[in-house]
Amino acid sequence: MAMIINKETLEHVASLARLEITPEEEGPLLGDLERILGYVAQLSSVDTSAIVSKRPAMTELRPDEPSEGLTREAGLGGAPAMRDGFVVVRNVMGGEDE
């Protein structure tokens, strides 16, 4: 039977999730994921052609009135690096878009 998830897929998914898989982790992790994904794949046999989603709708929206927020200290006091009120991170120019 064909594998659901291989090394490449695992690495792709890990990079999406910003997790790096150590060589030691890789083997066992692949085994676990293969078994879990194999197990949940049983749903493919359920006929859902007639199912209509019944998500509820919002009962109220928020009025456009300012409310008390957090001070910079309370909100970002735990940030690893701050300068002149900005949060400082490694340069990401030209990285992922917004």
């Binding site: 949940v40 749903l43 989603s53």
Partner: peptide, 29 residues
């Protein structure tokens, strides 16, 4: 980590319909 990876997998391009979308329908069922 295991669950984050499963989650990223079932939502990722090419697997979304077979996993996430299917599960959402069976949930409704």
């Amino acid at each position: 980590k295991r669950r984050i990876l499963i989650g990223a997998f079932v939502l990722s391009a090419g697997y979304y319909d077979a996993y996430y979308k299917k599960a959402a329908s069976v949930r409704q069922l």
